[in-house]
Design a protein around this nucleic acid. Structure first.
Length: 560
RNA sequence: GUGCCCGUAGCUCAACCGGAUAGAGCACCAGCCUUCUAAGCUGGGGGUUGCUGGUUCGAUUCCAGUCGGGCACACCA
């Protein structure tokens, strides 16, 4: 019986670290030992380039160093053989038995397979969506919701203690504008009327808010509860109602999208709690501010900004970035030594300012804090044509539209399955198509196929973990085994790089491996031992699919 | 004009912080269902990784420049 090794990369890099300390003690701990998966199977299961890294400092040929490293490599039940290839790669071949053991590991760990302890239970605050309550969520918010939520799920799987946070402004100029728009609607003024303000909100949803207000409805959002008074002249009441109403709409959309938040933070609270004043006073005391043109400025250029920023306007009000700094100081004080802000790239200019403000406070906050994940803009394609975003014409695509039209699974997958840094074209027709063009179905179909086979087997599923996995020897089976082994490392990479799309790509490859296996082999065969071994393998495959799809917030149907 | 992101097959996208012959899907061509779901599989064609230099054993990846696309550049949020 081979001792179970759950993470081959970690295990092997430990072995190489020991070899390194023998061959070249002065470099031990200095060089990072990287094991990578070679693209070609002839190059083994894992390749190490340590010898080539050492060639220059040691002034010896890499192949000679490789020879020495191999000689110093401690024995392991995992290693079948080791070869030197190319310029000095050390290729490691893993024993079949060690690979086969993954089946038992998956079946034993179940939904927990793939989870790692990198985060060690540390707190991380992830802020995302953070849309102001001035209208329905659109595709861009949808991308933020999908990427942010998947990131949270990945971080949780990587051992972090995640708090999902939503921050919004309920009191600024935009909200005044919203209040005014609703009030006008209550009075019967329409956007077509010449009296309608230039920057008023024109969408039909404003009318919905106005009607609900006049009807004295009650609304319950995740973070607040308001009953309308119906008084047209009470602007404060209208504002409270409109904010609560639109927040509730957002909550409904987000819930339909499978996204829930732990904490809602209001900008207005930062003022009422005195946190804004406190930050201003601290910044003045820090000596990084100055007065000019009747305004108070913060010397953000000291901290890398390209120009200084106004904190207090000449009319006495604060610019938005002051509460932003106060908000982040508050996060820091709540114990979030790690914070990740997921935002649209159109807000990237705030990064430098917020960090600069925090540095100026001199409160022990590290320089690069907080982290940011910026997603690029989304364009929507319908009937092959780009749908222009125009709030005026009301022709912009809401998150709700997408969920209703293409479904939650496909929408989440499309929005999360791409690198956040690249612009995204959301093709509605493609996402809707129930065909082989749609990658979501490709993965879900693989899962449904496994379930179909297993349900036709009369045996006891709970006994599959006892199957004799040493019978899994075909190329298809070996490929699938290795893919299952990779899963924890995919979670590790996705968590480290803050790149949830890696999960989606992994799942496509896993599904492809399974589909090939399925077409080339039969599972419900005569030989009982072989049958059990194969069923155990595909049961483990389905388990990993479920685990991976869960990280994307996508369902794993048993029938399609 | 300044800053940030992106340029990879006809299209949509990958490429494990510098690795070996740059990979998938769609589309196109040719095959595979009396047997566990054909929303699947097998094979084929398709590339000077925008361009030019540089760094080194080795570059899609790092650096400089250049061209193209997107975003942001308020005493608005």
């Amino acid at each position: 019986m081979t001792a179970a090794v759950s993470n081959f990369k970690i295990h092997l890099s430990d072995l190489f670290a020991q070899a390194l300390s023998t061959v070249s003690p002065e470099h031990a701990g200095q060089l990072s030992i990287l094991l990578e998966r070679p693209k070609q199977s002839q190059h083994g299961d894992y390749a190490c380039n340590l010898a080539m890294q050492l060639a220059k400092p040691l002034r010896r040929p890499p192949r000679e160093i490789a020879q020495a490293l191999i000689a110093a490599l401690p024995a392991s039940t995992v290693i079948e053989k080791v070869e030197i290839a190319g310029a000095g790669f050390i290729n490691v071949f893993v024993t079949t038995a060690a690979k086969q053991a993954v089946v038992r590991a998956v079946l034993h760990a179940g939904a927990g397979y793939g989870h790692i302890h990198a985060g060690a239970g540390r707190k991380v605050g992830v802020e995302f969506v953070s849309a102001n309550p001035t209208g329905p969520l659109h595709v861009g918010h949808g991308r933020g919701a999908a990427v942010g939520d998947c990131l949270c799920r990945v971080l949780q799987a990587a051992g972090w203690n995640v708090t999902r946070e939503f921050y919004y402004n309920d009191a600024g100029a935009q909200i005044d504008n919203l209040t005014h728009s609703v009030q006008l609607r209550c009075q019967g003024v329409t956007p077509d009327d010449p009296a309608w303000p230039e920057n008023g909100y024109r969408g039909d949803y404003i009318l919905d808010v106005a009607r609900a207000y006049m009807a004295r409805e009650s609304v319950e959002a995740d973070d607040q509860h308001v009953k309308a008074s119906g008084d047209i002249n009470d602007a404060v009441a209208i504002r409270h109602f409109a904010v609560a109403y639109l927040r509730r709409e957002q909550d409904l959309d987000l819930r339909a999208f499978g996204v829930n938040f732990d904490v809602f933070s209001l900008e207005s609270a930062l003022y009422t709690d005195g946190k804004v004043d406190e930050v201003v006073n601290k910044l003045i005391a820090s000596g990084h501010t100055y007065e000019q043109d009747a305004a108070l400025w913060l010397r953000t250029t000291t901290f890398g900004d390209d120009k200084d920023r106004v904190m207090r306007k000449s009319d006495g009000g604060y610019t938005y970035f002051v509460p932003d700094v106060a908000y982040h100081l508050d996060k820091w004080r709540r114990g979030f030594t790690r914070v990740i802000n997921e935002q649209g790239a159109d807000h990237h200019s705030t990064i430098t300012r917020v960090r600069a403000g925090l540095q100026a406070l001199d409160s022990g906050i590290p320089q690069g804090w907080p982290d940011y994940v910026l997603h690029q803009m989304v364009t929507v394609l319908r009937n092959g044509e780009e749908v222009k975003i125009s709030k005026r014409a009301g022709s912009y695509v809401t998150l709700r539209d997408l969920i209703d039209e293409v479904g939650c699974d496909a929408t989440r997958f499309f929005l999360a399955a791409r690198h956040p840094d690249s612009q995204l074209v959301f093709d509605i027709d493609l996402a809707k198509s129930q065909s082989n063009e749609n990658p979501v179905y490709y993965i879900q179909y693989a899962h449904a196929r496994v379930h179909s086979v297993l349900s036709q087997w009369e045996g006891d599923h709970a006994t599959l973990h006892q199957a004799d996995v040493s019978l899994l020897l075909s190329d298809y089976e070996t490929t699938l085994l290795q893919r299952l082994i990779d899963f924890p490392q995919v979670i590790e990479s996705a968590a480290e790089d803050l790149a949830p799309h890696l999960i989606a790509f992994y799942l496509k490859e896993l599904a492809a491996d399974f589909h090939s296996y399925y077409n080339a082999s039969r599972f419900l065969v005569e030989d009982d031992a072989v049958k059990r071994a194969r069923l155990a393998l595909i049961a483990a495959t389905a388990q990993v699919m479920r685990n991976g799809l869960a990280l994307l917030g996508v369902t794993s149907p048993e029938k399609m």
